[in-house]
């Protein structure tokens, strides 16, 4: 659909459904499916394919993403586009196999060593998994950088109706690709090694200028019933579905609650959050972790409003009723004060 021509992966629960699908799909599209001998091999195959100018991707789940992090850093350091999917499970270590959102920090802060970002998209439905993969490939090519889809075990394994858009045939020209110069141009180099500190410095600085543009242009979030909301819940991915149910429960009882769901985690939709919480009294961040995105929410509102946190980790999924309980508690507290 997105014009992806190669997939390199290694099985791990709860992500193997993607590999299984791609194993069937890639040969039909004239592409390559390869189950590598390890996650590390797979990500380096992605590096090679990306350098050759091919749309390429890999997918894994939390512990596997840690293994891929060296390769991801090399890909970012070589300014190469690719898509990486993380279907998060509980951690740290081997953790568990149930859904989790504990890799937010890893995805947005430290997906490998060095000064760099990757684009991070957070789908909240199966439909969005499809749409955002296409978006991720397009933006990765546009900005020549890796893009990640940060999903979780719940989204990875659930089924719901989905509409596939038309197959895309037009992948942009990549004059930088190392696909053979045939004597017609100078040879291209894909490389992340720069031994002269000055060269490396200017290379990284240039990359950060690109990030500045990205932070202006790409932040995306969905807002739901925020216009008159006293209490705004922030949540991404599967947690946002739970939060949405809780917001609906609150509205039924006359509590003015709303939801902001970041769709891009890098760039984080700071401005959207700041704007839509201007009239809110308190913010509640809900995650399937011990609280990671909550820090970005606090930064977005410059700590001017109280930002509370509610979450469960290790594979446990908060119930809408629990989140609703938290909203009620906040309502009780702010009710008297205003």
């Amino acid at each position: 659909m997105a014009g992806c021509k190669s997939f390199f992966g290694y099985p791990i629960t709860p992500q193997t459904e993607i590999s299984a699908y791609m194993a069937k799909r890639m040969p039909k599209e004239g592409g390559v499916f390869l189950q590598a001998e390890s996650e590390i091999a797979a990500v380096n195959m992605v590096l090679g394919a990306a350098a050759a100018g091919v749309r390429t991707m890999t997918s894994s789940s939390s512990p596997g993403i840690s293994l891929k992090s060296e390769g991801i850093s090399y890909i970012a350091g070589s300014d190469l586009p690719c898509v990486i999917i993380n279907v998060q499970r509980g951690g740290p270590g081997l953790g568990g196999i149930q859904p989790s959102q504990a890799d937010y920090w890893q995805a947005t802060r430290a997906l490998g060593h060095g000064d760099f970002h990757v684009l991070v998209y957070a789908p909240a439905s199966v439909q969005e998994m499809v749409d955002l993969v296409i978006e991720a490939f397009d933006r990765a090519d546009e900005y020549r950088m890796p893009a990640m889809l940060l999903a979780d075990g719940m989204l990875g394994q659930m089924m719901e109706p989905v509409t596939f858009p038309e197959v895309k045939k037009n992948v942009p020209d990549k004059p930088w690709a190392t696909n053979g110069h045939q004597g017609k141009r100078d040879h291209n180099v894909a490389n992340s090694l720069f031994l002269s500190p000055g060269d490396l410095h200017s290379k990284v600085v240039r990359r950060f200028e690109k990030y500045k543009e990205i932070e202006q242009k790409l932040p995306k979030a969905e807002t739901y019933k925020t216009e008159d909301a006293d209490i705004i819940v922030t949540a991404y991915g599967a947690a946002a579905r739970i939060a949405r149910s809780a917001v609906n429960m609150a509205r039924k009882e006359g509590i003015k609650a709303g939801l902001i769901r970041p769709v891009t985690l890098y760039p984080f939709p700071k401005e959207i959050i700041r704007k839509h919480t201007e009239n809110a009294k308190e913010i509640l961040c809900v995650e399937m972790s011990m609280g990671q995105m909550v820090e970005d929410v606090r930064l977005s509102v410059e700590c001017k409003k109280p930002v509370r946190f509610y979450g469960k980790t290790g594979g446990l999924i908060p119930e809408p009723a629990e989140v609703f309980e938290q909203i009620k508690r906040i309502e009780k507290r702010i009710g008297g004060a205003y």
Partner: peptide, 8 residues
């Protein structure tokens, strides 16, 4: 539209 797909 379905919020939480988890039935508790």
């Amino acid at each position: 539209p379905i919020g939480s797909p988890l039935v508790t």
